[in-house]
Amino acid sequence: MLKKQIPLAITFITGVIIVVTFFIPHPPFGRLQQDALTWYSVIFGFTMLLGVDSLVKFHYTKLRRREKGWWFSIVFYCGFLLSFITGVISEVRFGDAFNINSSFMYFYNTILIPLQSTMFALLAFFIASASYRAFRARNIDATFLLVTAVIVMLGRVPVGYMLWHKLPDLTSWILNVLQLGPMRGIMIGISLGTVAMSLRLILGIERTYLS
């Protein structure tokens, strides 16, 4: 009862209240959807604490057992403590760790930004190698995909314009017209699926989140 029925009841009651308040745009119901988003963020904050705790414990265990590559866990702790300590100091000193002059933001710009953007930039190589292996014009469908991708890639760089001056216009037409229809169809399909899943959750048909 406490482990299964109460969670199902909580989901049903909250879900129904949130849906009903959408149709009553008057106080106190009118603000509830907005408030619910805040509540969501607050609970997410607590889960963040759980996540970071789990990560810290994982590296602690790795260090204690001297597992393979244990010294990388020291690097993890150095990074973690650096951002955490500078964050706390900046929060106390400026009242806002995200102040542009804070040490927290200095390390953010020096460490996190280069690491993050290079990590994403690295994907360019993997996409290129994956497409080299996967892109084969085996049938008409694959040919359509290949030709469109090549046109879009060429149309967005100066060399495309040099090859054929109408290529950038053709790329814009593909992105704004030809792509719009199927993307809209996919979006409608996804939204209908989302509605169905939300109804299943509220009505207690979908219970996998409790396992």
Binding site: I6, T11, I17, I18, V19, Y40, I43, I188, S198, Y209
Partner: peptide
């Protein structure tokens, strides 16, 4: 219980948001 609460909020917001924000405008 907390997970159920967030799932309830998420499902409620998604249900109205998907219909109002995506399906009808699209």
């Amino acid at each position: 219980w907390s997970i159920a609460f967030t799932v309830g909020i998420g499902a409620g917001l998604t249900l109205t948001g998907a219909v109002h924000g995506y399906i009808i405008p699209q």
